[in-house]
Amino acid sequence: MKNSELLETISRVLYPFILLFGLYIILNGDLSPGGGFQGGTILATAFLTIYLVKSKNTISVKSLLKLEKVLFLMLLFVAVISVFTRGVPFTNFLPLNTQPDIKRVFLIILNILFGLKVATGLIAVFTAFISENEDFDDTY
């Protein structure tokens, strides 16, 4: 892909702001609109602007998929913690009569894990799409 200087500069400027916005939406997902999925997709788009700057990819799809699996297992683990603390699976691991400000922690942890999982999944899809012809170039 041919890159123009304008596009490169603008995406360099926008990159940290998009990352910040994605993190903001993930962290405030329990109080305001948004959440894990929306923030994760915004994080992924922030990452994809890197490809506009330099079209060569440096990450391998396999490590991304491994990270995604680890995040999925962690999600399951966080959901099952409540069996040990309250005796019921798939609910908040804090007792019912705690302050709402502290009970929020459970939702924030779930949102962060889910957002990272969505982001890695989308980046893996996009990286696989980009590296379609990369191995072809090496043989020539």
Binding site: M1, I25, P33, G34, G35, F37, Q38, T41, I42, A44, T45, L48, L122, F126, F129, I130, E132, N133
Partner: peptide
């Protein structure tokens, strides 16, 4: 429905056009 709007902005107007532009250039 601001929740759906956020998802629509991220997926519909950023990721899908990027993938389509990439496939056109390939």
């Amino acid at each position: 429905a601001p929740d759906v709007a956020l998802a629509e902005i991220a997926v519909g107007s950023a990721i899908v056009p990027l993938i389509l532009i990439l496939s056109i250039s390939k």
